[in-house]
Amino acid sequence: MSVLIGISIFPLDKGESVSEYVARAVEVIEKSKFPYVLTPMETVVETDTIESALKLVEDCFKALEIDCNRIIINIKIDFRKGRVDRIKGKIESVEKKLGKSLSKV
């Protein structure tokens, strides 16, 4: 089983640049040991259960709640039975169809 979750979490009350707070959430994700990919707009994480995905969102929230008065969290969840390693597999599937590796920044 695979649960892919796209999470975007940031405070609204900390000014224009919020990377310090996003970094806190990424640290939580990194400590979870689940595979993830950081992108400019969200972080995609692969877990093995919906419960672990939702717990990870809660842990990210708690990391910001300490000193943030207003927090936005956007999540997308893609559940699929019988699959694993989908972050890598989905990217490789598109690259195969394109006939080339996608550029890495």
Rank of each mutant, 00 (worst) to 15 (best):
I29E: 07
E27S: 14
A53K: 05
R24W: 05
T49E: 06
V45E: 00
I29W: 07
L56Q: 07
E46C: 00
R24H: 09
S19V: 10
S17K: 15
S19E: 09
K55Y: 09
S17C: 10
D59S: 10
F61K: 12
E27Q: 14
L54A: 02
V37Q: 13
R24V: 01
E58S: 08
K62P: 03
K33E: 15
L54V: 01
I72V: 15
Y36G: 02
A53M: 05
E58Y: 13
N74W: 14
A53N: 05
E42H: 06
T47M: 01
R70A: 14
I71K: 11
I71W: 10
L64G: 06
S32P: 02
L38F: 07
I75T: 15
K33M: 12
S17D: 12
M41G: 00
I66N: 11
T39S: 08
K31Q: 13
T39F: 00
K31V: 08
S19K: 10
A25K: 02
R24S: 01
I72Y: 14
A25M: 02
E46N: 06
T39A: 00
V26F: 11
R24C: 04
D67N: 13
L64F: 02
I50W: 06
R24A: 09
T43F: 03
L54Y: 05
K33V: 11
E20Q: 15
D48T: 13
D48N: 11
L38M: 09
L64R: 08
S19A: 13
T43L: 02
T43C: 00
